[in-house]
Each structure stands twice: as C-alpha cells, then as structure tokens.
Amino acid sequence: MLELLAIAREDGWAFIKKDGQLILLKPPYRDSNLVRVCEDIIEKAVSLHGFEPIHESYPGWGPLVDFLRAELAKVRQSKLGILDDAELKFELLRDAPREILEYYLHRTESELIPNGEWNAALDVLTLLMRVDIVRQDANLCQHAIALLQKCNAGLAANGRNRAELTAEGVVRLFPGVAQKYPVASVMEYMRNVAERHQVMPVGA
C-alpha cells in the first residue's frame, strides 16, 4: 500500500510513504525518479515550497501514477500546450549551446540515418540549419549539410529500391493479393501509384 502524503499538483511531484520510507516521485514517472528522502523534508516541502498535504492511499504505483498524470493533464489544458510542435522544437534549440547541437548532429548521424528514419533526420537537420550558432559556425554548418546530403542519397537509394520491385517481391510482400490478381497487373498498378499519385495522410 502506498500513502500519498503531499503533492505539488501543477508539477506532478509527490511525497509518498511506502513501507515506512518517505519517497519523492517526480515526472517522468519511472523507477529512477523515485528518490528516498528524510522524513523531515516533508515539513519544509509543505511549509515553504508549496506542497499540499494530502492523505490518500493507493494499492500500487499504477493507480497513483494515473492520478498524478490526470493532475498533469489539467495543467496541460490550463497553463501549457501553448507551443505547437514545430515551435517547441525550434525554441528548445535556438539558444542551445554548441555541445547540445553537436549531440543532435551526432545522434542524427549515428542513429537516424543508419535506421533510415529519414523524416526525423530531415526535421532535425532543417531545424538545425535555422539555428544561429549552426549557421555561424562553419564546422557545424558543413556537418549538417553533409548529413543532409546523406539523407538525400539515402532517400534516392530508397526510391531505387522501390522502383526495382520484382514479381518475386510482390509475391513475397503481398501473397494474398498475388493469389487473387495477376502479378504483372499488381506491379503495373503499384508503379502507377508510385509515379502518379501522392500519398495523402488522412484522419487523426
């Protein structure tokens, strides 16, 4: 049984007693964010740091975290949720130090591009190209451009792979369709879609 003793609702922080031990939990909710603290900390937390005393019991971490997440959702509706995703991404990086920008370039190069996560890689790189520090630093800028070129090459190779679709490939990838329709017709239809029709995302 977990006893919730104090909460800072807007930030999702909570002091919890479990087996006689006082624990601080803060978001994101995961094991490494459970911190054992001294008993007397709760007095200061409530007296001076805006924690609200609360005495509620929960049968386990799941229901407790659900409660804290519901409180955070209220904050999201009332006070956050101001920035759209593009703005959030740019604002995070616009004045980031060089080491962070290098970290983003490194992860793009070592993870996104090898994994073929082209949309994510292009998003990171085009955004970085808008950041003043990157634009003003020849090394960072050249690194970003080189990675954009890798993305370009990767996307082109990806396109070629699609164009080289074979009858065996159609049978292997779409066995049900290949049983019902002539494989040559399916291939012609696929080429037609690939060449003439854009993919249009619909729905939420």
Binding site: P27, Y29, R69, L72, R76, L80, I82, L88
Partner: peptide
Amino acid sequence: DERRNLVEAFVL
C-alpha cells in the same frame, strides 16, 4: 504528456 510538459515548461 509528462515529458512534453517538462520540455515545454523548460522552453517557456
């Protein structure tokens, strides 16, 4: 949502 809250608060 909880990670986004943290990042958005930090950005603001």
